[in-house]
């Protein structure tokens, strides 16, 4: 059985998200900061007239949060009936991956990161971590 994944990079790691979960991928949009918002919320963007919240997963991944004006690409997903935009460094490609290349997350993974990762595909170039997007966004 095979599934299609969109790959993207945050810092040095390569992540994957099921294609069907993704509404669109976009280039940089200026963000309006939301004072007092929980950590990880990177502000609001105007997507063709809709106000969409952006989420920076870096704090959840143990990384420094992006600066408010840092350029970033976006992947828009729908979770709990709302559109949410993930900030990523770079959107990669669409890969069709076979289930037999999939493994549960390696034990060496940072426990905080492990919560968000359902597993990893062994690619020739390295590991592709599959993101549990609902969990990642629910915890924001």
């Amino acid at each position: 059985m095979s599934t299609q994944y969109v790959t993207f990079r945050i810092a040095d790691a390569l992540y994957g998200l099921e294609v069907l979960r993704i509404e669109e991928t976009l280039g940089h949009h200026p963000r309006t900061p939301v004072p007092l918002a929980p950590q990880g919320i990177a502000g609001l963007v105007n997507l063709r007239g809709q106000v969409v919240m952006t989420v920076d997963l870096r704090p959840r991944l143990g990384l420094e949060q992006l600066a408010g004006d840092a350029e970033s690409m976006m992947i828009v997903v729908e979770t709990h009936g709302e559109s949410v935009s993930l900030l990523v460094d770079e959107v990669g490609e669409v890969l069709t991956l076979e289930a037999d290349a999939f493994e549960t997350p390696p034990d060496t993974l940072d426990p905080r990161v492990r919560e968000l990762i359902t597993g990893a595909f062994k690619l020739e170039s390295g590991l592709l971590l599959t993101l549990d997007v609902d969990r990642a966004l629910a915890a924001v």
Partner: peptide, 17 residues
């Protein structure tokens, strides 16, 4: 309307363009 996570902050009534 605001995303749920932002409604709970409690000082914003919404957003506009």
């Amino acid at each position: 309307p605001l995303a749920t996570a932002l409604k709970t902050i409690g000082i914003y009534a919404g957003a506009t363009l």
